[in-house]
Every structure is written in C-alpha cells, then in structure tokens.
C-alpha cells in the first residue's frame, strides 16, 4: 500500500468524481460535501463499473404516526448507482443501501496541501 497522487484538490469541485486505474485496481474517487471518498469500481453484483453511474439522492418512504404512508421522498443522503443493474451504494460508506454487508472495498484518501492521494 502506498499513497498514489491522483490530482489537485482545487480541481475537484464538490460532486466531481474521477475513475482511476492504479496497477490492477480501478477506483472511483468522489468529492461529496467537502470530503473525499474512494471505492473499488468493481460492483459486488456482477462486476459492473459501480462508481461510474448516476449519483442520486436516497429515497425514503415517510410514515405518519398512525402508520399510513406519505409516499416516496428524496432525502439529503447521496447514493451512487451502478449503471449495469442499479445496485445503489451509500456515498459515505460504500454499502449497498439495503444490505450493509454488501460493501465496496474502501480506499483511504489523504490530502496534503492541495494534493490528493489514494492509498492503494
């Protein structure tokens, strides 16, 4: 494991992403709400490019106290979706939104000044 330089922080706007190949690994690096997150780009379903699809807010169904439904709503939590079949992963954890045991390999991201490194 070594720190691999992947770019300048100033070139990463919030919401931007990069897909990089480091040796044999393929990694998606997201900048979300100021933080960097890096995950394996190999989806746990059938190996699709997990980090290259749509980023979209999580959907929740709101219930009233009497258990009646208020329908579906977008929340403020952000997910990224594998474009092959739709596995939806939580931006902050890399876990499948419904099954936390399905979790993309996570890589550490280190920033030194304006330089961004992925530990891979």
């Amino acid at each position: 494991m070594a720190e691999q330089f992947i770019g300048k922080a100033s070139e990463f706007k919030d919401g931007d992403r990069q897909i990089v190949r480091i040796g044999e690994d393929e990694i998606g690096i997201f900048r979300h709400e100021g933080e960097f997150y890096a995950y394996s780009n190999f989806c746990l379903h059938q190996g699709g490019p997990a980090c290259e699809g749509l980023t979209i807010a999580n959907v929740e169904e709101r219930l009233r106290p009497d258990k009646t439904s208020m329908g579906l709503h977008f929340t403020n939590d952000m997910n990224f979706v594998c474009p092959w079949h739709g596995y939806e992963y939580d931006m902050k954890t890399g876990c499948h939104v419904k099954d936390k045991s399905v979790r993309l390999r996570k890589y550490d991201v280190v920033t030194k000044g304006n330089d961004v490194y992925v530990v891979a």
């Binding site: 070594a2 691999q4 330089f5 992947i6 770019g7 706007k13 919030d14 919401g15 931007d16 992403r17 990069q18 897909i19 990089v20 190949r21 480091i22 040796g23 393929e26 900048r31 290259e52 980023t55 891979a120």
Partner: peptide, 12 residues
Amino acid sequence: KKVEILRKISAP
C-alpha cells in the same frame, strides 16, 4: 504503480 485517469465526471 502507474496511476491512469480513466474518466472525470463533473458534479451534477
């Protein structure tokens, strides 16, 4: 290891 940038996807 060589770092190769495959794609840049800009913020929505």
